[in-house]
Design a protein around this nucleic acid. Structure first.
Lengths: 108, 108
DNA sequence: TCCGGTTGTTCAATATTATTGAACTATTGA
DNA sequence: TCAATAGTTCAATAATATTGAACAACCGGA
């Protein structure tokens, strides 16, 4: 049996861990993709193309432990979804402003 | 002669560099302090107590290069100030939301 | 039920970054 | 000119990140 995913309670999530998670370009891109799709996605689809699987796995773990995503095993794959509402309630405006800015930046 | 400080034009500042700069606890604390004072502060005052000078210097450089602060030599010291208005215009809501959240977090 | 394909994890080696002591520069005030 | 103050630079070391390789779990089909 594989280790189950651990999701921190939102009250235990720190601003620092959230910023740390989002400060990495690859992870920001993952979060952006998850936000743009609106629904859950598996790791390979959400991660930037050509990223090694072990690196993907690592980044998703960081995002999970930062409280930004929720991951669930579905057969061979893992479905990841943003914890938008919860995060927004805990740190109002933070992630939404970052996503908005990053969307705008992409279009430049 | 010492190298002059280089401040990026705000249009060249990237969201990633801003997030990277703010993701470090020491740097976030510096930015918080600068924000709370409202006016410029020298490095030693704005940095967390007991931080080695070489480390301070490094962190201020990161903040400067990320476009978050402006530094100016005044005699033997360097006066640092947030580039609030400019940053807010470039990435609306981002830094302000982070500072608000970090203020709240401190009070817990 | 066994096998091959798919998806992701883990571990350990390597590569990249961060931290810091020590030596140094620049400025000021006595 | 000298000592004190404030910060910078550099190089060594410490801490993190990345990734290949081996592995585990699950699925669908023969």
């Amino acid at each position: 049996m594989q280790r189950p995913f651990l999701h921190p309670a939102m009250e235990d999530v720190t601003l620092e861990s959230v910023l740390y998670a989002l400060a990495d370009p690859a992870r920001l891109a993952i979060v952006q993709k998850l936000a743009s799709e609106g629904c859950g996605m598996n790791c390979s689809s959400a991660a930037p193309a050509a990223m090694p699987k072990s690196t993907q796995s690592h980044h998703f773990q960081i995002l999970r432990e930062a409280g930004l995503i929720r991951s669930e095993r579905r057969g061979t794959e893992v479905v990841n979804a943003l914890r938008c509402v919860e995060v927004e309630k805990r740190f109002p405006g933070v992630v939404s402003a970052i996503l908005k800015a990053s969307e705008k930046a992409k279009k430049r």
